[in-house]
Design a protein around this nucleic acid. Sequence first.
DNA 1: ACGTTAATTGTACATACTGTCTACCTAAAT
DNA 2: ATTTAGGTAGACAGTATGTACAATTAACGT
Lengths: 208, 208
Amino acid sequence: MSPRPYRLGRRKPAAQRTRARVLRAARELLTARAGAEPFSVEAVARRARVARMTVYHQFGSRRGLLEALFDSFAAGGELPAHLAAAFQRPDPLESLADVVAAFARFWDAGRPWIRRVRALGVLDPELGEAVEARNARRREVVRVLVERLGQRYGRPAPGERAQAEALLYTLTSFETFDMLAGPRRKLPDVAGQVLFLARAAVGHPRDS
Amino acid sequence: MSPRPYRLGRRKPAAQRTRARVLRAARELLTARAGAEPFSVEAVARRARVARMTVYHQFGSRRGLLEALFDSFAAGGELPAHLAAAFQRPDPLESLADVVAAFARFWDAGRPWIRRVRALGVLDPELGEAVEARNARRREVVRVLVERLGQRYGRPAPGERAQAEALLYTLTSFETFDMLAGPRRKLPDVAGQVLFLARAAVGHPRDS
DNA sequence: ACGTTAATTGTACATACTGTCTACCTAAAT
DNA sequence: ATTTAGGTAGACAGTATGTACAATTAACGT
């Protein structure tokens, strides 16, 4: 009765390839220009040339597919490396600049479809929670940053620390980048503006 | 063959009452807590105790309903009066403070459902355009504000003006307020933080 | 008073999507 | 050879949109 042991072996890469194909199709579908075919499991399956049942088999549900998409993006990018490099800097103000730049590149890379996924997250509370959980890392980054700034430049007011965290969290959000970038602003410009506000938020306007 | 003239007369208020009832139901449905029944014409009609056909008759489509909802909110509030008052101020920096406060109250009043409508706007491009058009007024407000600041305090650099406009437009957006407010921050706190950043954005940090 | 108009409703329809289920085929593992 | 699991196919119930057509009702114009 107990199932005999079974490892996937050679089948695993094949399965992961179809998985990747589905994720790619989902990303493309969400990126789709103004025509905007609505995002549906059916459409994803069609585009990936896969049976709809395969999608459910691999991701469980529409929600699972979107969460997996978000994760694959976060895992595949260079964000962790950039953040690590940012915290190597001796001066926390330089860390701040690097962190802002890192998130700017990160958001910019996935701009068209991240916007849609976040919108879906607003409409579907459970998906929203999952998406929000992906921001926990950013929350932590901001917290550490503010802490180091406090140590280096000494601003011990307890309320101010929370305020600075809230501001930086908002300023480094996807929404801020997305709105500031608008339809055609260049990435460096936007990152520069965000950094400008971020420095003001932590009490260090202009250049030092 | 030409239809004989016909004014609604006494029937008009009755029709507008059902219209209002439908809009109210829509707003309530969008505000619905975590349970989050999905927003659908069917659900709105049920809640308004009205036939689904009536909704289509009055608003044309799901999209039309949402646009009408947005408009009714903008028309009904005190925002225009607050903005007018803001621009009465002699000092444009005081105008800025009032404008920020006005939008803060405006967004705060409709927070739960505005978030959802905007998400729907991201997913449905045509609705998105309609929603974006509602922001034209804010865009203009920001433009005039920056212009007056330039006249009063003299910062003629042409690029800087566009930058300041972009920043203020982003800072006064619903998304900024919504993120900064989080689940439980108080309105005055948030407005204060936004104003803080806004002053920095136009080159007047702190108090004067 | 009587025909007309428009708001509202009821029913039905074509289309599309979600999630679930059952059955099946097949390549790979044991 | 037998078992396991990935992928497929078809059907199903439930819900949604948008449209069409007919019916009801109350106010309107003459």
